[in-house]
Design a binder for these strands. Structure first.
Length: 493
RNA sequence: GCCCCCAUCGUCUAGUGGCCUAGGACACCGCCCUUUCAAGGCGGCGGCGGGGAUUCGAAUUCCCCUGGGGGCACCA
């Protein structure tokens, strides 16, 4: 066990702003955040925008929004600053230039004047011969005069790191153990592009050191980059942080999770009615486990129980069905008031926008008790309750059922009678009266209620009928039943 | 092609040589409950990729194979 100053844990989530916050990125962020919070450490958000072509301002907003929605707050980073800022790499150009100059001065790095075309050619040639391409370091020993001539000619140059040609670089990884890479295979890689913009591996190494990062938790895809970053740090004479490379998240076909597998960004899950607790819980369990038995963890419990030691090394398939179940579980266990608030936030972006609580219409809070146990997503609320707010639209199957039921008109008249007279107009009283009526008529309750259900909602599936009639109100319930009796059954009986 | 990672039910996983006739969760299949649908309860189906080696004993250790994935850029 390495010496670790627990209170000094500093982790970072370092997304490149080239798209939405992918659930894979969200999981990486979550694990970093959990480690920081569980250790009383610091969670840093750093934007790696050195890819000028693909980075966008909009992507930064989306990532920031996504993290905030998930509840993963950062202690240092964009929007809030911090003692190690700025937190966008493009704003840290001075630092990289300074470090590059230092390496140049120490002869740990050198300028290379090879053109991109020459290198491409060499690369494809190597590939043809079936050999691995490794930069041959031809610019390593340029003498001052030659360099002066090149510069005179206006040739562009990049800065390369002088890398070891023997030995191995070993990554001590907290999830994979020791992983060894042969130095020869690496080649002198580029630190600074001819444009002056640092490459990823250089910027990351410089920043992880400069920001005092103690644990780098990131995706498995970065494992092969790690020896390069270690070389940069070694050249700068710095001690590297500890590393933990998380296995990838796969789609059901075991290919890396992508759009064609369905929703992949936290934004999409949010729009489709998922709650943050479920997404965090699910993501936490995708690669980490506590005891193999417990599956539901509140954020507090995750913070309390999370540890890198229990992060697995196997790539995991993203199971939407399980996430959906978990989402339903969280919705069911929520305080009704809390659920009402979530719906309050969610509904404005649906076709129910502005409807609940309006003139004579039920409030969200009135409906929550009727649907809470049926919801798997917040979006389900819309399908389940739209008839309370909108004119009844009959589902084809429901209408067929209703019209083909010869007893329906009679049953509906009995129901209408009860609705018109029952006192008080409460679900309990309605239930008592209807149960009795069913018994008196010697029909099963379900048979009695189904026509009512369809008449009042147009659907085969609704919340409990007594509660529904109660919330809908005496007038409206009657109106709907009468309407069916007079219009739909016109000429039938 | 080269380098690296990974391998337990369909899926997420527990399991660190004997407690394993392999445990839990989701899914699936029955049954119960029931005004529809869910939810819930009970029960069931289902797995250590293959081959060697070590050992009294291997899901657990080692090697090979196979399979999956990642990386080999003036992308991150």
């Amino acid at each position: 066990m390495e010496r670790t100053d627990k209170a000094g844990v500093r982790v970072r989530f370092a997304p490149s702003p080239t798209g939405h916050l992918h659930v894979g990125g969200a999981r990486t962020a979550l694990y970093n955040w959990l480690l920081a919070r569980s250790q009383g450490g610091t969670f840093v958000l750093r934007i790696e925008d050195t890819d000028l072509e693909r980075s966008t301002e909009q992507a930064i907003d989306q990532i920031v929004d996504g993290l905030q929605w998930l509840g993963l707050d950062w202690d240092e980073g964009p929007r809030i600053g911090g003692p190690h800022g700025p937190y966008r790499q493009m704003e840290r150009a001075g630092l990289y230039a300074e470090k590059a100059d230092g390496l140049l001065a120490d002869r740990k790095a050198y300028r290379c004047y090879c053109s991109a075309e020459d290198l491409d050619a060499a690369r494809s040639q190597a590939r043809e011969k079936g050999e691995p391409y490794i930069y041959d370091g031809r610019c390593q020993r340029l003498d001052g005069d030659t360099e002066a001539v090149f510069r005179e000619e206006g040739r562009q140059s990049v800065i390369r790191l002088r890398t070891p040609t023997t030995g191995n670089t070993v990554v001590k990884d907290l999830v994979h153990g020791e992983v060894s890479f042969e130095n020869v295979l690496c080649g002198d890689f580029i630190l600074v592009r001819s444009s002056g913009v640092p490459t990823y591996n250089f910027a990351v190494a410089v920043d992880d050191i400069a920001m005092g990062i103690t644990h780098v938790i990131r995706g498995d895809d970065h494992l092969p980059n790690t020896p390069k970053q270690l070389m940069v740090m070694a050249a700068m004479g710095e001690e590297p942080p500890q590393y933990a490379h998380l296995p990838l998240i796969l789609g059901t076909d075991r290919a890396p999770l992508s759009k064609r597998h369905g929703d992949v960004s936290v934004e999409e899950f949010r729009e489709h009615g998922y709650v943050r607790e479920a997404l965090c819980n699910y993501l936490a369990l995708l690669g980490w486990s506590f005891d193999g038995e417990t599956t539901l963890f509140s954020m507090e419990e995750l913070v309390e129980k999370f540890s890198l030691e229990r992060v697995g090394s196997t790539a995991a398939v993203f199971d939407r069905v399980k996430l959906l179940w978990m989402n339903g579980s969280y919705i069911r266990d929520m305080e009704p008031i809390e659920l009402a608030e979530r719906l309050e936030e969610f509904l404005p972006s649906t076709r129910l926008a502005g409807l609940p609580g309006g003139e004579g219409r039920p409030e969200i809070a009135d409906l929550v008790p009727l649907v809470q146990e049926k919801l798997k997503t917040l979006a389900d609320f819309v399908e389940l309750t739209d008839f309370f707010f909108l004119p009844v639209e009959f589902e084809e199957k429901a209408l067929d059922k209703l019209l083909s039921n010869g007893e329906a008109p009679a049953l509906l008249r009995v129901a209408a009678g009860i609705i018109a007279e029952v006192e008080p107009y409460s679900s309990e009283a309605i239930e008592a009266a209807m149960r009795k009526a069913a018994e008196d008529m010697q029909v099963k309750l379900g048979k009695f209620l189904q026509p009512v259900r369809i008449a009042v909602s147009g659907k085969m599936v609704t919340p409990g009928m007594f509660e529904t009639l109660s919330v809908l109100g005496r007038e409206e319930s009657l109106r709907r039943i009468e309407h069916v009796l007079s219009k739909q059954f016109k000429g039938h009986s």
